[in-house]
C-alpha cells in the first residue's frame, strides 16, 4: 500500500511538469491554431540554458529561471517573426499543416544543435540541497521535486492571472475566440499572436529548467515531451490553464498507477490509451470550452 502511495506521490510530482509543459503548447495551439511539434525541443533547450547558467555562471539552479524565462521569451518572439508568423496568413487547415512542417524542421535543427553544443550525454543539475528528503506518514518526498511542483503551480497561476486580467492577456483570449471580431474591436491580433507564442516558449523554457533540476535531460528528450504535452492538451482540452495543469497531474498519476499495476513498461502506454479514449468519448477534453 505504501509502495503504491509512494508511486502516486511521485506521479503527482512529475505530473506538475507535464502540466507546465502542456500549458505552453496549449496556449500556442489555442490562440494561434498552430501545433508546434518542436515544443519538446524548446523544453530541451530551456533545460540546457539552465544547465549553462548553473555550470558557467554558478547560479542557483532555481534562480536560473530568472535568466531562462526572459531568454525564452525573446527566442519565442524571434521564432514567431522568423518562422511561424508566416503561416498565420493561411486558413486554419493549411496553417496547421504548414506549422507541422516548420515544427518538424525546427525540432531536427534544435536536436542537432544540442548534440553539437552539449553532446548526446544525459545531464542534470546537482543542487546544493540535492538528496534531501522529507518523510511524511511513511512517504518520502524529495525536496527538490516538491519545489519544482510548487514553482510549476506558481507559474501556471501567474499565467492564469495574466490571461484573465492583463490587457494584452484579454486580447490574446479574444483573438483565440474570434480573431476577426478581435480585429474589429481594434486589437492588433498579430501582436497578440506574437505575445502568445513568446509566452508559450517561455513556459517551455521554465518547464525545461525544472526538468533539468528535478530529473535529467539529453538532446533527444524533445519528442517525448512533445507527446506528453500533447496528451495532456487532449485530455484537458483548450481554454483553461488551471485545467491543463490538472490534466498534467492526472497523467502523472495515471502513469504511476499503470506502472504499479501492470509493470514499468506500461507507464508509457497509458498516456496513449488516454489520448485515444478521450478523443473518442469527449473530444473537447475534460475542461475544454
Amino acid at each position: 500500500m505504501t509502495v503504491l502511495a509512494q508511486q502516486l506521490v511521485l506521479g503527482l510530482l512529475i505530473g506538475s511538469l507535464y502540466g507546465l509543459a502542456a500549458a505552453g503548447l496549449s496556449l500556442v495551439f489555442g490562440v494561434l491554431k498552430v501545433l508546434n511539434v518542436a515544443h519538446g525541443e524548446l523544453i530541451m533547450l530551456g533545460g540546457y540554458g539552465a544547465f549553462w547558467a548553473v555550470a558557467l555562471l554558478g547560479m542557483d539552479p532555481f534562480a536560473a529561471l530568472a535568466l531562462v524565462v526572459p531568454a525564452a521569451l525573446v527566442l519565442g518572439a524571434v521564432l514567431f517573426l522568423g518562422l511561424f508568423g508566416f503561416v498565420m496568413r493561411a486558413d486554419e487547415e493549411t496553417r496547421i499543416k504548414n506549422s507541422l512542417l516548420i515544427g518538424f524542421g525546427l525540432a531536427l535543427a534544435l536536436h542537432a544543435l544540442a548534440v553539437q553544443l552539449w553532446t548526446a550525454d544525459e545531464r542534470s543539475i546537482p543542487t546544493p540541497y540535492g538528496g534531501a528528503v522529507i518523510t511524511v506518514a511513511g512517504l518520502s518526498l524529495p525536496v527538490v521535486r516538491l519545489l519544482t511542483l510548487a514553482l510549476a503551480f506558481a507559474l501556471i497561476g501567474a499565467l492564469h492571472l495574466l490571461l484573465a486580467h492583463w490587457r494584452w492577456g484579454q486580447a490574446i483570449r479574444a483573438a483565440a475566440e474570434d480573431w476577426q471580431a478581435a480585429l474589429l474591436t481594434g486589437i492588433d491580433v498579430r501582436r497578440a499572436y506574437l505575445l502568445a507564442f513568446a509566452m508559450g516558449t517561455a513556459l517551455a523554457g521554465a518547464a525545461g529548467t525544472l526538468v533539468t533540476i528535478g530529473y535529467s535531460i539529453s538532446p533527444s528528450i524533445g519528442l517525448e515531451w512533445t507527446l506528453k504535452a500533447l496528451i495532456v492538451v487532449v485530455l484537458a482540452g483548450l481554454g483553461s490553464m488551471l485545467g491543463t495543469f490538472t490534466g498534467g497531474l492526472a497523467l502523472g498519476v495515471a502513469e504511476a498507477v499503470s506502472a504499479a499495476a501492470f509493470g514499468g513498461p506500461y507507464r508509457e502506454v497509458v498516456g496513449l490509451v488516454i489520448f485515444v479514449v478521450v478523443l473518442l468519448v469527449r473530444p473537447r477534453g475534460l475542461f475544454g470550452r
Partner: peptide, 16 residues
C-alpha cells in the same frame, strides 16, 4: 467573445 462577461466584451472594445 462568448466565454467572457458583458463588461469584458465592452472593455475589449476600448482596447486601442
Amino acid at each position: 467573445f462568448g466565454s467572457m462577461t458583458v463588461e469584458e466584451n465592452l472593455a475589449l472594445g476600448a482596447f486601442a
